[in-house]
Design a protein around this nucleic acid. Structure first.
Lengths: 148, 148
DNA sequence: GAGAGATGGTCAAGTAGCTTGACCATCCCG
DNA sequence: CGGGATGGTCAAGCTACTTGACCATCTCTC
């Protein structure tokens, strides 16, 4: 594969990723959840299963724990999460989603599903499934949040 | 397709995009071009063919023209581009890449090709070609720079 | 042509999200 | 028990971006 083709693939990938992020965010706003940025979505994804500590979140987002703490301040103030005492470590706080936080997470899922449905209309269901499988195989580990 | 699958696809896509961006940037740095951020790469991509005006660049990057102007200041100061008089409009300046700017662009292409080669090792050349074609079909128009 | 509004660009100041540095509370381990 | 490691916060600073104001030049209409 030539460099120019690699660039075409890269550009398309980044454009799709950017559009997806934007449209998920728009979908979340349209469902009544305001004052949130895409970075919050990445935090919610980490908090969703069982909660997480600030340090966990920082590693997941690829930022300092101070930055993660500020982000938690923000989503707590806006009613999407709350700080609880950690059951196993008195130093730590367990950050968990509130009901509103869960509702917002579901809204993000719906918005994402809506975008993906648009892709199915273009590519067909099978190709989208293949896309999911292929991207899963080349996805790197490490912090989730794209660092640009 | 269920919402959870849409989320899995979205997460994989964003992870791949984030990893790609990071690795291209690392590759560019490794080739001796310092002081550049991913946003500069998106600017170079727009400048590369024939140059562009600050306003063009701003629209392409999805930022204000003031921000684009500052970014141009920076790449001019670092020797990657220069401001020329616009041949058709005395108000405008045509921003064009210097030889160093072109060298950096080629370095980014090489770095991208390197990453894509890694994908070929996992997926096979044919699947990567298919990926390129499919992503090209679902890529949105509008500003290129992912807005998160 | 001549004036009025639109457009390209820059200067200046403010903002938001991140960083580094310092610090305290608690945990873990010899 | 004592000392280092770890979780978290407070404070201050940095930087990429924004909004607002302004000038030069283009373009349209009369």
């Amino acid at each position: 594969m030539q460099n120019s083709e690699a660039m075409a693939l890269s550009a398309a990938l980044l454009a799709v990723a950017g559009g997806l992020t934007q449209r998920i965010n728009e979908g979340v706003v349209a469902r009544g959840f305001e004052g949130l940025r895409p970075a919050h979505g990445f935090a919610f994804a980490r908090l969703a299963p069982d909660g997480a500590t600030v340090t966990d979140l920082a590693a997941h987002l690829g930022v300092t724990k101070q930055a993660a703490s500020q982000l938690v301040d923000e989503i707590v103030r806006k009613g999407y999460a709350e700080r609880r005492v950690h059951p196993l470590d008195a130093r730590a706080r367990l950050i968990v989603l509130t009901e509103r936080g869960w509702a917002c997470t579901r809204a993000a899922e719906e918005a994402a599903a809506e975008v993906v449905r648009g892709w199915s209309d273009v590519l067909g269901e099978g190709e989208v499934q293949a896309l999911r499988e292929q991207l899963g195989r080349i996805a790197p580990y490490g912090p989730i949040r794209p660092a640009w």
